[in-house]
Amino acid sequence: MAKSLTAPARYYQGSALLSQSYRYVSHLGRRFAIIADHLVKDLVEERIEEGFRDAGNACVFLHFNGETTLGEVARLTALICEENCSGIIGVGGGKAIDAAKLVGDTCGLPVVIAPTSAATDAPCSSMAVLYSEEGAFHKVQKLKSGPQVVLVDTEIISKAPVRLLISGMGDAFATYYEARACERAGVQNYTGGVRMHTSLTLAELCRDLLLKYGYQAKRDVEAKRDTQAVENVVEANIYLSGIGFENNGCAAAHAIQNGMTAAIKPFAALHGEGVALGTLVQLIMEYNECGRWNQSEWNQAVTFYRKVGLPLSFGHIGITDADDLLLDKIAKASVTPDSKAHNMPFEITQEKIFTALRQLRDMGL
């Protein structure tokens, strides 16, 4: 089987990039449909119009309703067909980004992604997550290609709520541990190939940047400062995590997050917060399986979580009644036949996940 590596065609990161947006996308065409919700439109409209001024303001905003469902993708696709556009720009958080990717894939148009936070690693991947009308995880859909351009304006990201940056750190921190599990299991990555040394190295670098700069980046975003620490963590959250998960694979951490969204409705935690908790559960299962607790690795993770403010318990994500019945429900929803939990390097069962969930609960972290 061939080794494989995928990445967005072009990635740009820096301050005030949206005010120069047409410069970075002009090779794709002249007129663009911009998919964003009302709050994001208010935030970026002036900047994007400034960036498109030299092109005669050749852009049109289309409203995203906030949930990436099959119905919303179909609605936006129909609107795009009415516009004479040469490309799509998805602006906002993970769901708006995924909606833009799905619409572009359907219409056969190039896609530009401009995240307004560093809350997820969705911008760089050639995959998109679909949800049910109730907001529960539905499925991950592979796309024909990844984004042609990823445009990361760190001036905007540094002024976003700090919770979003922290959530992104939770999503990104899982990247290395899930990559390591997938390597040990020998499973294919999301491109259908074998991971390269490059892939695991990027995932490891992602973790190391978070450990080194995560706390300072959190403090800087709390003060609305765009600093080098923020730039480093944004690179980890968006680029390294995105490239890392797609070229290595996901495992139990994301499966447990998906299980929680299915078992708990509504699920109040952000994606990265749920993944962060799932990472701890994954580590517990690994330690249980090998019969040896890696205290050094565990302490490193727990210390990092405490410093940056990631959840260490179910109570930290608003689950105050994590009794055995609920934990068993989460475990069952996490181990469906198509679950990424089966990418772990040992047999995964509902009982193993339930045991690890209960161990985390009983630690009282």
Rank of each mutant, 00 (worst) to 15 (best):
C290Q: 15
F245K: 00
C250R: 11
A251R: 09
G278A: 08
L283A: 01
A268Y: 13
S241V: 09
A269S: 13
Q282Y: 02
T279F: 04
A263C: 03
L240M: 15
N258K: 12
E273Q: 12
L270I: 10
R292Q: 13
E286T: 09
I319M: 06
A262R: 15
P266C: 07
S241D: 07
E297F: 05
W293N: 11
N288R: 12
L283I: 08
L312E: 12
H316L: 09
I264Y: 09
F267I: 03
S296C: 08
V275M: 00
R306W: 03
A253G: 07
Y305C: 02
A251K: 09
A255T: 08
N288T: 02
I238T: 04
G249H: 06
G291H: 09
F304A: 07
G249V: 01
L283V: 01
A276G: 10
S313P: 05
R306T: 09
R306I: 02
K307S: 13
W293K: 11
L312I: 10
M285D: 00
V302L: 13
G318K: 04
N258A: 13
Y305I: 12
Q282P: 03
L310A: 00
G315N: 13
S241I: 05
Q282K: 06
G259Q: 02
A262G: 12
S241L: 06
V308S: 06
A255N: 10
H316K: 14
E286L: 12
C290W: 10
C290K: 15
Y287P: 05
